[in-house]
């Protein structure tokens, strides 16, 4: 092999379009923010251009803000659900991120 030392980045083919970011997350655990104050954390198995996705070992967090009618205090309640396998329709997706550094 001759020396072809073009400085190839570690990432394969890097990110040229936004969906590449999702492609690079295949088989990884991702964080998904959905409409209606819902969040998902799970392993990404498949996706398409609509951002329909198949996730496994999913933890869904639903956040509900209730206002106490007497004290007007905001009460933030979170509810968690787990699913072994979940299909997510893409139209509900707001944001997708690899879960590292997600608080």
């Amino acid at each position: 092999m001759t020396e072809e030392t073009h400085t190839a980045p570690v990432e394969p083919a890097a990110v040229e379009e936004p969906l590449d970011l999702v492609r690079l997350s295949l088989d990884e655990r991702i964080y998904v923010k959905l409409r209606g104050d819902r969040e998902l954390r799970g392993k990404l198995h498949a996706y398409d251009g609509h951002l329909n996705m198949v996730l496994s070992e999913v933890e869904e967090t639903i956040t509900v803000v209730e206002i106490n009618e007497e004290t007007y205090e905001e009460v933030i309640r979170t509810q968690k659900k787990t699913s072994e396998m979940l299909f997510v329709r893409g139209d509900g997706v707001i944001l997708v991120s690899p879960p590292v550094r997600t608080g």
Binding site: V15, P18, L19, L21, V22, Y31, L51, G90, D91, V93, I94, L95, V96, S97, P98, V100, R101, T102, G103
Partner: peptide
């Protein structure tokens, strides 16, 4: 509220 290393934001929002 949050920090993400990389984030994909769907265009319809």
């Amino acid at each position: 509220k949050n920090k993400y290393g990389d984030a994909f934001i769907r265009g319809n929002n």
